[in-house]
Amino acid sequence: MSKEWPLWEVFVRAKNGLSHRHVGSVHAADDRMAIEAARDTYTRRMEGVSLWVVRSADIVASDPGEGAALFEPAADKVYRHPTFYSIPEHVKNI
């Protein structure tokens, strides 16, 4: 077994109504320690109101080798982009 503590990915909700965003990672031996390390590392300047941590090893990532098949077909379908609407100026966070 590695002597290094496992890596955890950290997600912070900046304020209620927004979604959690990935901000970085921490090393921790267990889930409580991961939350505390995340709190001390990523929310000490009032960055958030809620934290998620998840073991990095539990994240399933897409294969970069399949990038062409997965993502390029979307490139020429401009009609899927919501760019034809005008958004009122006072609406934030869209």
């Binding site: 503590w5 921490v26 090393h27 320690m33 001390d40």
Partner: peptide, 11 residues
């Protein structure tokens, strides 16, 4: 011993 512990103690 770890960066994370360093931050937590100094916090």
């Amino acid at each position: 011993p770890m960066l994370e512990v360093d931050l937590s103690l100094t916090n």
